[in-house]
């Protein structure tokens, strides 16, 4: 590893901007966020960056490092090779300034999802076999890297039609909950837009919590929607039974 490394960091806002290069001294075990902090402390005090825990727990420091969505606090410099390291804000969301993006659309989506509605108030007695699927989804730290890499949101900006992978796991978590009573299948198809996902698994590839977003949440939800909306035999049986 070289003694210094060059970071090319996006500087600008929603009206535009450009990358600027900074030389940063390298220390053992340094991560991209450390380098960005060095720039902020020594070279560009006005550099805007969102961060909090520096431990891959808070999901604040999401960015695009050499074109790949990653957490800056979890990306070591020594895995990025010897060349210039490009650091840019998440592409799917409007830039507020430099590396900080406006992710408030996600919180508006979260409010639209029908909430947990148990048959009776807590406390519940639940078995581990019934909650282990939901527990995987609860590892989500809301870094929104999956939302950023999802091509439906990233390239086509279909935010009005598809809620994105983060909220597909939220819906799956609620749908698979043994105590929940709400039917979200119609919502999943029409409002959440599960049909827009073409299961190319990029969300799963970038998830820092290694949640199997596509395999364990989106595909099971597609199958549940297929049960209700596309399976002709099940639709016929329901019609005969009158429900």
């Amino acid at each position: 590893m070289k003694d210094t490394i060059t970071l090319s960091v996006f500087r600008g806002d929603h009206t535009g901007g450009e990358e600027r290069s900074y030389d940063v001294p390298v220390t053992e075990g340094m991560v991209v966020l450390d380098a960005v902090h060095y720039i902020q402390q020594h070279l560009a005090p006005d550099l805007a960056v969102r961060w909090n825990c520096k431990a891959a727990r808070c999901g604040s420091c999401s960015a695009e490092i050499n074109g790949r969505p990653r957490l800056m606090c979890k990306t070591r410099l020594d895995v990025l090779g010897e060349g210039v390291i490009h650091v840019r804000p998440m592409k799917s969301f409007p830039v507020i300034r430099d590396l900080v993006t406006d992710v408030s659309w996600n919180y508006r989506v979260a409010r639209q999802i029908p909430g947990f509605t148990p048959a009776h108030p807590a406390p519940f007695v639940m078995h581990q076999v019934d909650v282990e699927r939901s527990q995987e989804f609860r590892k989500c730290i809301e870094c929104f890297l999956c939302q950023n890499v999802c091509h439906v949101l990233r390239d086509h900006d279909l935010k009005s039609r598809y809620v994105g992978p983060r909220f597909m796991i939220k819906i799956a978590e609620l749908e698979m909950h043994p105590m929940d009573t709400v039917d979200r299948i119609d919502f999943t198809q029409k409002d959440a837009g599960v049909g827009y996902c073409n299961v190319t698994k990029c969300c799963q590839e970038v998830c820092p919590e290694h949640i199997h977003i596509t395999d364990n949440a989106i595909i099971p939800m597609k199958e549940r929607v297929a049960d209700e909306k596309y399976d002709p035999v099940r639709m016929l049986v329901r019609a005969i039974r009158g429900r």
């Binding site: 990358e19 600027r20 900074y22 030389d23 020594h42 070279l43 060349g83």
Partner: peptide
């Protein structure tokens, strides 16, 4: 000593493994 150097074009190279 680290220092700011000349700004570059906004379209980055995309080195990957």
């Amino acid at each position: 000593m680290a220092q700011a150097v000349t700004p570059q074009a906004s379209s980055p190279a995309r080195p990957r493994e």
